[in-house]
Structure formats: structure tokens, C-alpha cells
Design a binder for these strands. Sequence first.
DNA 1: CATGAATGAGCTTTCATTCAT
DNA 2: AATGAATGAAAGCTCATTCAT
Lengths: 203, 203, 203, 203
Amino acid sequence: MQQRAQESRQKILNAGIEEFALHGFHGAKIDAIADQAGINKQRIYAYFKNKDGLFEAALSSSFERLLQYENVLMRLTTDQAHELTERIVRHYMTFHQQYPQFWRLLAWCNLEQIDLESGVSRIDGDVFKHLRIIYKEGQSQGIFLKDVSFETFIYMVTALSFFYFSNMKTMSRSLQLDFEQANVKEQIITEVLRQLEVQVPAI
Amino acid sequence: MQQRAQESRQKILNAGIEEFALHGFHGAKIDAIADQAGINKQRIYAYFKNKDGLFEAALSSSFERLLQYENVLMRLTTDQAHELTERIVRHYMTFHQQYPQFWRLLAWCNLEQIDLESGVSRIDGDVFKHLRIIYKEGQSQGIFLKDVSFETFIYMVTALSFFYFSNMKTMSRSLQLDFEQANVKEQIITEVLRQLEVQVPAI
Amino acid sequence: MQQRAQESRQKILNAGIEEFALHGFHGAKIDAIADQAGINKQRIYAYFKNKDGLFEAALSSSFERLLQYENVLMRLTTDQAHELTERIVRHYMTFHQQYPQFWRLLAWCNLEQIDLESGVSRIDGDVFKHLRIIYKEGQSQGIFLKDVSFETFIYMVTALSFFYFSNMKTMSRSLQLDFEQANVKEQIITEVLRQLEVQVPAI
Amino acid sequence: MQQRAQESRQKILNAGIEEFALHGFHGAKIDAIADQAGINKQRIYAYFKNKDGLFEAALSSSFERLLQYENVLMRLTTDQAHELTERIVRHYMTFHQQYPQFWRLLAWCNLEQIDLESGVSRIDGDVFKHLRIIYKEGQSQGIFLKDVSFETFIYMVTALSFFYFSNMKTMSRSLQLDFEQANVKEQIITEVLRQLEVQVPAI
DNA sequence: CATGAATGAGCTTTCATTCAT
DNA sequence: AATGAATGAAAGCTCATTCAT
């Protein structure tokens, strides 16, 4: 593939991610993607076969980005167990804020019951394996509750960071608190961390 | 409005909730709703003006149902602070499981950036006001952390129950755990509660 | 179905037969059919599901017409064996000339390898059964050759009448004879009949 | 034109004949032809101007092949009048079977009302002139009917051989006889020849 | 109150053809 | 001579909505 084509492909992919993240698979319009990419509609079919193909590529690329971003977590060591929770929570919060396309695409997938198997290669595997070791170490040091499994731990930090963005509008409304504001976010993070980092009472 | 009309309206509304919950606003098809309701398409326009109108009604009705269901929580008293967390978490988990239309509609709204103001009247107000009192009492008794606000507390229980269903597919995948299974759910609830109910170390 | 709809359906069907006969399945345009029928394009999908559906209906209707037309042949009796060949040949020649849509549709089917099974119910069965009896009688009377089967007889009359129209253009050209002209047609029919009606030499 | 170009041209032409024979003018796709020829699409436009140009060339080449094949018939002599019918019928049957592209292209032309004038140079002229002489001789010998013109004779043998292939599918169906099978074909040919070779009753 | 018939705008996709290298 | 990249027009089909009875 020539460089010019490579660029076109990339422009389409970016526009696709944007559009799919914004409107979901069914809501996204090929025309809009072509327009935003500034290319001829037909090129989409040349490079991605069809709408499904482009969606898969968009999803895949988005996951790629997450994996890339997770590299930072891979550098955590076992002697950092005490700051593990905060690091992870802030890590995902930042990621979701900076790259909302990811959580949006994921949310669409969950709703539109789209098969993730195709297109998205293995996810999260390595990071979780790495973090598990640190968590176990933390448990033995009394930093984490002995009877809260690693899976539940991950479940909690993931949920608490994802939900902040995915349900921002409705939560802002029902709690009468503007989740868009930085200080609100900081406040909630801080307090969530207090709950998750409660020291085990040493008897 | 005659009784027959009332019934028609209700059939449409139910079908609408079903369809919108399943496919979102843009994915839902008027034809499908009419079919499922077993009425003529035109009736939808007679009763709800247009697609938007029906969606608003569906949303509203769904919230109504939540409010209804929340009445149970209104009967909690201040001397039940020690079981507050578990009651709330299990309450929402059960609701989301029994009536998935709600979390789905909400999720669609968050993604499709639909304005909640119109149609959905005041939400949650009373319940939260009531629960706040019990929570405060719990704080003073050392059941809840003093420096975790009621808002954050609600944020956590809401997130942890909502996310379980809204992200079931993707979480099952990345944690290699089948979230559909009852025992998995019970395990996670139990452990989540351990974390949220950690007793404040009494010095 | 209301009468108005019935009419619309018929207009579409007629336009479809015309268009498909003229341009074949792939060459026919839905827009053109809608235009010619003077109805909204969408109605085609409402009444015939899709292009395939309309094609099947067109084909089916066309065969229906042939069957209708063949009723005349059903009235031939065994004592008319001597005029059987001429009756059949002229019958089909006239049909093909008056209703060219049929041979065209059939020709398209043979070329575009379209499955006839769907849509077209049993064809020709009864007529052939009837004609076979007369043919057998004719054979025993020495009107037809004993060692030319009924199948081959039908094959010949069918081919010789069908081909006249289906290959009119190319035959006109290579034989330098205008097949469109009535007298040319009459001449060829006459001579073809001479060949097919040759009396068995009675020794 | 260089040799390499000559080869490219030929590959395109072959692929074109194949594709046009299979799908007709409108059904054939330039992309498919380019793919099958293993060359770049643009070459087609360089060598044949456009789709029409290629079609004409394909048609022309196909006729060329027929003429080539007809050379055998040119070697028939007047003393072979008694076997003329069989030779011609078998000749065309074999040709159509071995090179179905021809009858298919011809059939498409007749249906798609394509102007043969352009591209296809003079056809059949010489062969027919040659065969006519033999036929006349046969007539004077009483081998052929005196009142069946050469044109009608050619019409019959052409129709009876062409139709066998062009309407194979539909005839197989309506006669409940598998025309693909070799013995069926042989049977029909034999019987057709009996009818066409009936000796004039010598009084 | 209720229904079947009809519409127009818009969607995904295809294809012959041209441009740039 | 040869190729990959790009285009615009058009095709089949869907859907929210309105009309007529």
C-alpha cells in the first residue's frame, strides 16, 4: 500500500472511531465518516470492506490504545502495593477522560450486543496478571482485605472509574452535583479511595 | 379517553419500552413497536405525537417504575444503618436484574445524549433525602467513614450495581468470569460489601 | 387487501414483467419499474419483499399466462393427429409474438442461471400429457415417425418456434432475411411444417 | 505493441469473453475481468477504450472462433449431400458444447439488444455459400425436400442445435429429462436426424 | 377509534471510469 | 507499459411519517 493510501486509511479510521464513539454502530453514518475524513465514501469499502469491517477496525484500534496506555501500570512493582488502588483508579479515570472514545465504544458494544470476539484480540490479559501479583503481596501485608479477591478488586476500580464517565449526565442530575467539574471529580476520587484503602484493623 | 384506547396506549407503551431498551432510540423501529403491540402504526402517532414522544413516555414510565420500587427503601429506619449498604446494593442489583429495561434505557440516554429534562420528572429526590438521614446517623455511630460524603456513598453503590449489568459482557470477557452465573454474582456482591462495610478502626 | 392496493400491486407486476423481460434480472432497475408503474418505489418492497420477490412473481405470472393460453391445445382430440404439428407450431409462434415477455423471461432465466423451482409452480405437465396421447395415436396411424419419441417431437416444435424469436436478430443477419416480416415468417413456418409432416413412405 | 503488451491484451480478452459469456454485458464487472486476467484494471481502458470496446472485441473474437471451426464444413463436397444434415447438426452441437461462450454471447446479444454491426465483421457468408451448393445438389437427388428452401434448412439445423444448449435448463424441467446427460443428447440428436433426413417418397 | 395505503428522504453499497505515480 | 488510488453517479432497500377510508 502506498503512503497516500496509508494516510487515507488512517483518516478514515480516525473519523470512524469518532463517529462510532459518538453515535454507535447503527447511529453512525458512512456519509458522515467520509465527510469528516475528507475522502470519497467508496474508499471506506476499499479499505475496510463494509461498515462492520470499519467498526471492527475502530474497536480494535481503540483497544490497542488502551493496551498502550496500560504499559505504565506494568511498571508498578510489588513494593508499591500501598499506592496500587490510587494508581489504578487515577490511571483509568485519566484515560477515560482523555480518550472518551474508548468507554463510549465499549458501552455501545454492551448495549448493541456486538460480538467482541471478532476484531478485538486478547484484552487486558498481561496487565491483570501483573497487577494480581502486586495485589496478592498487598493482601499479605494487610493493605488489602484478605477476603476480597483480586477479581472483585478489579471489578470495583473498573466500575468506579468507568461509571463516572458513562453515567455522568444522569448522576449529575440525580445527585445535583456537576460531575464535569474538576473539583467534584477530585472530591469523589479522594473519598472513593478512602473507602477502598481502609486499613485492615490490626488487632 | 375510552377504555379501549387506554389499553391500546398501554400496549404501545410497553412495546416501546421493550424496543427502545433493546435497540436504543435510533435503533428502535416504529414498525417493530407497532407489530409487537399488535396495533396499527398510526395509533402511535395519535397517542404520542411521534417517535420522540413515545421515547419520552417510555423513559418516564421506566423511571416511574424505579420510584415505585424504591418505596421499600423509604421504609428503612435510622436504627438500620448497619445494614444500609447491603440493603441498597441488593435492592438495585435485584431491580436491574428483574427490570433490565431501566438500566438499558439509561445507558442509551447517556450515550445518545438525550435530554432527560423533558419527560422525566423529578428523580430520586425523596429516597435520597431519606437515606441521607440514615447515613448520617451511621457516620456518627462509626458505621460509615466520617470523611466519605453521602454523595460519594451513593455514587459507589449505584456504580457498583449498575456497572455489573451494563458491562456484563465485556467484564465477563476480561476477567474470564461468567457474570451471568448466580454464584459469581453472589460472590462479587459479598466481597464488594466487605469492602464497603469495613468497620472504622476504633481506637 | 383493499382494492386500491390490489391495483397498485398489479401495476407494479405489469411494469416488472415489462422491465424484467426487457433487461433481465440484473439489468432491470427498481426505479424504472416504479416509474413505469407510476407508484412509489417503496410499495414494491411492501408487496413483493424485494427485487427477487418481484422477479419470481413476474415469472410466475408469465407462466400462468402461458398455461392459460395452452388451454386451446387441451381441446385437440385424437382424430386431429394429422394437424397436430401445425396447430402446436402456430400456437407457440403466435404466443411468442403476441407476448414476447414470456420467451424473453425464459431466455434470461437460462442465461442468468436463475432457479426456476421457487415461484414457478409445475409447468406444462397437463398439456404435454394430453398431447402425448394424440401423438401416440398419430404414430400408430403412420402420421408420425415410429422411432421419433414424443419428447423429441416436443423438443423440435418448441425449439423451432422459440428460436425464431429469441434469435431473430442474429438469424436475420446471417441468413440475410428479415425475420420481422410476416411473409418471411409464413414461408419458414410452411417449410418447417413440410419437413415435420413428411408422410412416412408407405411400402 | 510490444510482446508483453500483446500478452496482456490477450489475457484481458480471454477473461472478458469468459465474464461476458457468463454474466452478459450488464452483469459483467470490469473488476472481475481484471482480476481474472491478472492485470490492472486500467489496462483494459488502455487497450479497449471502455467496457463496450472490450465487449465488441470479445464478441468479434468469439465469431472468429466459430468461423475457424466452420472450416471443417468447407471441406464437405457435393457427393456428401446424404450426410450433410448429420454433419452440420453434430458440428454445431459439438461446437456449442465445447465452446459455450459463443452461444451464450449470442443469446445475450439477442436479449440485450446489442448492435452486432459494430465489431462483428461479416458472418457465416462463405460457409453458407458453400453449403448451399451441396444442399441444392441434394435436393436434385431427392435427398432433401424440393419445397424446403436452403434458408429454412439452415434455420432448422441451427435452431435445433442452438436451442439444446440455450434452453437446457428449462427444457430439462418441462420434459422431465436431464439434457446434461450424454445419452439423452445422443437420443435426441438421433431422432431429430431421422425427422430431418426422411427420404422423399419415391413414386 | 382504528386501519391499510402511500410517500420522500436517507442509508449502505457497487461500479465504470479517471488520476497520479 | 503498468499500477494503485480516487471518484461520482446510481443501485437496492429502509424508515419515520402522512393520507384516505
